[in-house]
Nucleic acid binder design. Structure first.
Length: 496
RNA sequence: GGCCCGUUGGUCAAGCGGCCUAAGACACCGCCCUUUCACGGCGGUAACGCGGGUUCGAAUCCCGCACGGGUCACCA
């Protein structure tokens, strides 16, 4: 059987979009499933729209997601170059062949002329298609105009016939009427190829067997097929993936918040979670597999036939849920590696501290990771383990510090903790439980104020775990500090 | 507007003519666990866009309509 070769062909006009990422991922899945190759090709023929760091951004996002390519930028391969801007000779040669064979022709119509023509057609209620008037230009006339220095475009001479049938693995056979197409442009007046043309020439030259791309390209496909036919190329298999839509069902754009892979990274998503989430958008694992699954685990059962035809709306909540699951299940050291940058960024840790307190960082992450959904939250939830408490949460102050006798109670709690030899969660808990029993109070009466004293917050991981991680010294200090604060706080209150 | 694709709960989705008085997951609600918040466990609310056919039988096939999306560039 022929080798499977697929490609992902982004245009470097910005960051890698979540939709593009999904397309790349599905191409990857298909390539791996069929022991084929994934080619990465940069479609940079329109210099006006290029963005500086875009290629580097896209490559790093793909890598971050775990999508590796077999041929392409920074990788090479036998079918390069992999930048369309470096493949001009291919396009020129193919266009020349078509013109010589009479399958394409020069068109000298100016943009103004075309606009005028289009306007007339609009008025008459006709489809806005090119009339084809340069089709019949005599050879000597063409030569004459070229000599005058006019810059023509090259148009494909679309043959007469009823319909163009496109076979799509996901959608079946799609039929387009011939009268939907005019003699469209394949080479622009600046000599660069138009998208459909470059795409066909490259896909053929790179021996692409399956073109897997977003649904927005389905309507382009018949045009491309016409080019394949004119060039006498074998037509690859097509598969058009449904779109990913914003929550309001409109096309995804910046105004919908996070839509690029790098933004998800910024928010504190783990690459595995994003890849997992994207896999679920259009693909459904078997019941046994479950939904927490890596692309690598999907490979063996992946098939394009089973990919959903329906446009999907992306749901951040589910991504975050997955992310939370990955955070709790992640290898602890790897998690630290991912989380430390967030701690640094928030100023919770300095680079030096991060270097010197690795064990401590691990113990902190171990206790907080169960209850957060992103690395940002993880950092926020870790703050009081690394930095002094800056204040007590407002609503907790009145509730837990406002009760009579709390200061004394905390002072006694502090005493007990001071006597704990080995400062483990079990031992601190026993010390506290004993005190609670002796005083015949409810656990919460002591536990809640203590939590507020130690963390400054009303919610935290289990109190005794927190104590164990914090260590005796810090716990005693913070309790002492809290006792002072409460005495002051209540004195102030009495005055008013 | 023409053409193309699509339409199962709020979201992702299973389903490919009888197993469907429609699975699972997220979200939501309740209960349990519990020192708080999560986690976890148990339970619950919630869907085949509408109208015609075909068939003994339709979420599944066909047609029409509605709605959503895509596309009609010297953008990709």
């Amino acid at each position: 059987m022929e080798e499977v070769r697929v490609r992902f062909a982004p245009s470097p006009t910005g960051y890698l979009h979540i939709g593009g990422a999904r397309t790349a991922l599905f191409n990857w899945l298909f390539a791996r499933r069929n022991s084929g190759k994934l080619v990465l090709r940069i479609e940079d023929t329109d210099s006006d729209r290029l963005k500086e760091d875009s290629v580097a951004q896209i490559l790093s996002s793909l890598r971050w997601l775990g999508v590796d390519w077999d041929e392409g930028p920074e990788k090479g391969g036998d079918f390069g170059p992999y930048y369309q801007s470096q493949r001009q000779e291919f396009y020129t040669a193919a266009a020349k062949t078509l013109v010589e064979e009479g399958k394409a022709y020069y068109c000298f119509c100016s943009e103004e002329e075309l606009a005028k023509e289009r306007e007339e057609r609009r008025r008459e209620g006709l489809p806005l298609l090119y009339s084809g008037k340069c089709r019949s230009l005599a050879a000597n006339e063409v030569r004459e105009r070229l000599r005058q220095g006019l810059k023509p475009v090259i148009r494909l001479k679309v043959p007469n016939r009823d319909r163009v049938l496109v076979k799509d693995i996901i959608r079946g056979t799609v039929s387009f009427a011939r009268d939907q197409f005019d003699d469209f442009i394949i080479v622009k007046s600046n000599g660069l190829p138009a998208y459909n043309f470059a795409c066909v020439v490259d896909d053929h030259a790179m021996q692409i067997s399956h073109v897997i791309r977003a649904e927005e390209h389905l309507s382009n496909t018949p045009k491309q097929q016409l080019i394949y036919e004119a060039l006498g190329y074998e037509i690859p298999q097509f598969a058009h993936l449904s779109m990913i839509l914003a929550p309001d069902r409109s096309k995804l754009s910046k105004r919908h918040g996070a839509t690029s892979v790098s933004e998800f990274k910024e928010m504190g998503c783990l690459p595995e979670a994003v890849a997992n989430y994207l896999t679920l958008l259009g693909w459904s694992p078997t019941e046994e597999q479950g939904e927490i699954i890596s692309p690598a685990e999907v490979v063996s059962s992946f098939s394009l036939e089973k990919v959903s035809k329906t446009a999907a709306i992306y749901d951040l909540q589910k991504l975050f849920w997955l992310n939370g699951r990955y955070i709790t299940d992640y290898d602890l050291e790897k998690l630290a590696f991912q989380a430390v940058p967030f701690l640094l960024r928030e100023g919770i840790l300095s680079p030096l501290e991060a270097e010197q307190n690795q064990e401590y960082i691990l113990s902190v992450l171990r206790t907080v990771r169960d209850r957060v959904k992103t690395l940002r939250e993880l950092a926020e939830a870790s703050r009081y383990f690394f930095r002094d408490i800056e204040g007590y949460e407002e609503k907790g102050q009145e509730k837990y510090f406002g009760r009579p006798g709390v200061a004394d109670l905390l002072a006694r709690g502090r005493e007990r903790l001071a006597g704990v030899e080995v400062f483990t969660a079990e031992n601190t808990e026993r010390a506290y439980r004993d005190l609670i029993a002796e005083l015949a109070i409810k656990g919460g009466q002591l536990i809640h104020p203590t939590r507020l004293a130690l963390t400054g917050r009303t919610v935290s991981p289990g109190l005794f775990e927190v104590m164990a991680v914090l260590g005796r010294e810090r716990c005693l200090d913070r309790l002492e500090q809290a006792v002072k604060f409460i005495r002051l706080y209540n004195a102030e209150k009495e005055k008013t």
